[in-house]
Structure formats: structure tokens, C-alpha cells
């Protein structure tokens, strides 16, 4: 093994870092020309360095940029919303109105405890449970409030259960969405969605993911 390692190796690294004074470099070259072991070592350093630098650059795959763009969150929500509000005071006013209105809805939720449901032909009522009998098809949405629903037949629409439970038989078919609303917040959200649907009739096909 090499006996003159430490100080010389230090100079080799300084040289490879490009961080060496002229005097130090001279001392290093002098030593290398007289010491075959250190010279070999230096050659090995240079060779491994050259191998790394000989590799051609790796290119990003096709579609990389568009891939990033689709992964970005839709709009910087905070910036986006505050920008909209600043530019459209009317929307700001509408938002305030909305907020006040939802407070009313909120209190409605806790006051209105009565069992009620959407009037549809073919429904059977057992106490506080609405039954969609096997073999029957209910056309349109079904909303049950403060009661339960048992579906054995088919509902060609959405089923919403507000503060109640639902039971689906193995024969049950629901073509739309099924929603259970228990919390006041869910209730509020449900009302807002209805409101939005009423205000903007063109958005008839409600997106399934939100």
C-alpha cells in the first residue's frame, strides 16, 4: 500500500475540485512523476471521473411537460377566488347573500323533524319506512326525510335519505346516485347543490366527482 497517502490525496482532490494553487499543483505533479503508486491512484480518479462525464445526457420522455400541466391543481384557489371577488363585486354580494341564506337553511335542518318523502306511485309505507317493492320501477328521484328507505325494486333516478337509514335488497337497482345525509353540513351542501341546479338549469348532468 501507499505510504504517502494523506497529504498527497488531499492535493489530488483539490486538483480534481479545481481548487488548487499553482504551488500546490507543482508539488503534486512533482510527486506523481516520482511515485508510481500515487500516479496510478490519480489515473484511477481521472478514469472514473471521465466515465461519468462520458455518459450522454438523459432526455425527458415525450409529453413530460403536458404531464406536469395536467397534474397541477386546477387553479390556485385562494388567488383565484380573491381575484374573482375583486373583479366582480356582484359575485361577492351574491356570496354574502348565499351565506346568510345558508344560515336559514341550517336552522331549518334542526327544526324540521317530520317524516316526509317524495310522492311517487307504487311506493309502500311501513311505519316510517318507505318501501320500493320488488318488481316495481319508480320513475324519478326519491327523497326520504326523517325516515328509512328499503329498496327491493328499481329507482330510475337518485335516492337521497336525510337522517334515516337505507336498506338495499339484492334485487335493488338505482340508476342515479345514492346519498345519505346525516349531518347538518351535508344537509347544507345538499341544499346548495339543489339551489345551484335550479339557478343553472343547463348543468343538467351533474358531475359524479367533485
Amino acid at each position: 500500500m501507499n505510504t504517502c497517502q494523506q497529504p498527497v490525496i488531499h492535493l489530488m482532490h483539490a486538483y480534481l475540485d479545481g481548487d488548487i494553487s499553482r504551488d500546490e499543483e507543482q508539488a503534486l505533479q512533482q510527486h506523481l512523476s516520482s511515485c508510481p503508486q500515487c500516479n496510478d491512484m490519480m489515473e484511477e480518479f481521472k478514469m472514473s471521473e471521465q466515465l461519468l462525464q462520458s455518459a450522454s445526457p438523459i432526455r425527458a420522455p415525450e409529453g413530460f411537460v403536458s404531464g406536469v400541466m395536467t397534474r397541477l391543481p386546477k387553479e390556485k384557489s385562494q388567488a383565484g377566488i380573491s381575484r374573482i371577488l375583486r373583479r366582480h363585486p356582484l359575485i361577492a354580494a351574491a356570496a354574502l347573500f348565499f351565506l346568510l341564506m345558508s344560515a336559514t337553511l341550517f336552522s331549518n335542518f334542526s327544526n324540521n323533524q317530520q317524516f316526509s318523502f317524495t310522492k311517487q306511485p307504487n311506493l309502500i309505507i311501513e311505519g316510517e319506512t318507505v318501501v320500493v317493492p320488488a318488481g316495481e320501477i319508480i320513475k324519478g328521484d326519491l327523497v326520504v326525510k326523517n325516515g328509512n328507505v328499503r329498496i327491493e325494486g328499481e329507482v330510475d333516478g337518485n335516492v337521497t335519505v336525510i337522517r334515516g337509514s337505507k336498506y338495499m335488497a339484492s334485487t335493488a337497482v338505482v340508476t342515479g346516485s345514492i346519498e345519505e345525509i346525516d349531518e347538518a353540513f351535508d344537509w347544507l351542501w345538499y341544499k346548495i347543490k339543489l339551489f345551484v341546479k335550479d339557478v343553472i338549469p343547463s348543468s343538467d348532468s351533474e358531475p359524479t366527482t367533485e
Binding site: R59, A60, V65, M69, K76, R83
Partner: peptide, 18 residues
Amino acid sequence: GNQEAFEEIVTLFQQRLY
């Protein structure tokens, strides 16, 4: 809030980062 402006940044740095 201009999201599209980010595309050029990605294009400029994609090779290095990848």
C-alpha cells in the same frame, strides 16, 4: 394566477430535473 405561464418554466428545466 396565470397557470399557463408555468408551462414555459417546465419546458426550460425539464431536462435537468428529469
